[in-house]
Write a protein that binds this DNA or RNA. Structure first.
Lengths: 243, 243
DNA sequence: CGGGGTATTGATAAGTATCAACGGCAGTGG
DNA sequence: CCACTGCCGTTGATACTTATCAATACCCCG
């Protein structure tokens, strides 16, 4: 599955774009050196499968750049995305080899991979990595539970508005109007939201017709009034889903 | 909110029914003593609210006996259960005081509560509690993601069959037919499944009419053929949702 | 016996999926 | 350079699923 091996293994962690947010965030000095000694970089092209559902995963890793999806599927082919992996997110479960999810690169993805046995040994010997991982796992748990509310109780319009508001907020700059490029296809959005492609498409069109958002091509989204979008999303407060 | 204070604080942890599964499972000797020194027991009656959404939580705790629900709600009152808490499950997040979820006792509940500052101090000083908590959090994360598939992709009939199969399997004994008492009301089931009460009721009736399950009163469920129920649930394999 | 909470069932409406056709765009190869 | 092909997205017509509204039954308890 790996396609491109970037020769970055010796890169300085201090130059790393996710240095302060990833699983290594609270490590320093010898701990960081030890992590660095077990790391290697690997990249995937958009669309490539990184891990198959049920496959053994000989590594754990951090997303350095790009975007990947975590999906779970039923025997008859129905799929549900259960997570969106972004830079600094962690992939793999220490102590368990089989992956219960499929991981697919949405954009080109580069990951910082850690040899599993070495990583697990380090976790048992030093506290910082385990602590950071616990913190990150609890964040992900909160995000997953927030998403359960979206899946279980929101209407199609609210679901789409919720996703757009997340993407817009994540891409937020000082510039108005807010603008973002959707990393996901309509199909991936549908898989995330528990909807069909057609319903996603219709709801996006409806939000555009209602003046809540504007589109640039098929991927660009503009929003002049985020609070209007949040109302459509069913969030009065500025509830932050995802991380 | 606490109603009954059981005088069990000095009870021997080795007699505890959740000793080998809770957050304290991997502790021993001095570590266990230290945990014991910060613990106290408290009980709630069925139906009582243990924690309000958004409230400060001055403790963290383990469920010792009983069953509680974790729910998240929208401003307009729509609610989604995001977790079902059973004996040995952990309540509260170290490092964060505000609870993003409402916790309600479904049956009478007894919890083993730990003073938050003492617990957090111990987590930072000894590795076992943090490790166990990470393990438990990752399990919960998997469970939450499994449930996302249920909420996002399953039909009403499949959702109800899924829940019944979980309850039946959890109560599993060697005896046939399988029998269990639902801990949840129809309303709680609906909140868990992302459905309405009426739909839950109809689907239960339909499964009964189709001979998949039998009922005893309103809470007792019998199943002669679990595999038939699993097929209705959309699970061919014996996929284990929850813990 | 009456009352409040809980569950069931029916009629209807609303929301979303399904099936189908079509448009746009990029890459490919003649 | 242009037709061809495939993928992605949009839109429409219709069917199906589930929610909503309403009535009634049930049951434990006072």
């Amino acid at each position: 599955m790996p396609r491109v091996d970037l020769m970055l293994a010796k890169e300085d962690c201090n130059q790393c774009p996710i240095r302060h947010r990833a699983v290594c965030a609270t490590c320093d000095g010898p701990e960081l050196d030890r992590l660095a000694s077990m790391k290697s970089y690997r990249s995937w092209k958009a669309g490539e499968t990184i891990v198959l559902e049920g496959d053994a995963l000989p590594f754990v890793a951090s997303i350095v750049t790009g975007c990947a999806t975590l999906t779970r599927s039923m025997e008859d082919g129905r799929m549900q995305m259960v997570g969106l992996l972004l830079p600094s997110d962690f992939v793999g479960r220490p102590g368990r080899v089989a992956a219960p999810y499929e991981v697919v690169a949405v954009t080109d993805v580069t990951m910082c991979m850690f040899d599993r046995p070495a990583f697990e040994k380090m976790m048992s010997e030093t506290p910082h990595v385990a602590h950071r991982l616990l913190e990150m796992s609890l964040d992900e748990l909160d995000a997953a539970r927030d998403w359960m509310l979206v899946l279980g109780r929101k209407t199609a319009r609210e679901k789409v508005a919720t996703l757009l508001s997340i993407v817009l907020r994540r891409a937020s700059t000082a510039a108005r109007p807010l603008r973002a490029d959707l990393p996901l296809t309509r199909e991936a959005m549908a898989t995330y939201l528990g909807l069909t492609i057609e319903t996603v498409s219709r709801q996006i069109s409806a939000l555009r017709k209602d003046g809540i958002i504007r589109l640039e091509g098929t991927r660009g989204v503009l929003c002049d009034d985020l609070s209007a979008l949040l109302i459509e999303a069913g969030d009065d407060d500025d509830g932050d889903f995802l991380d």
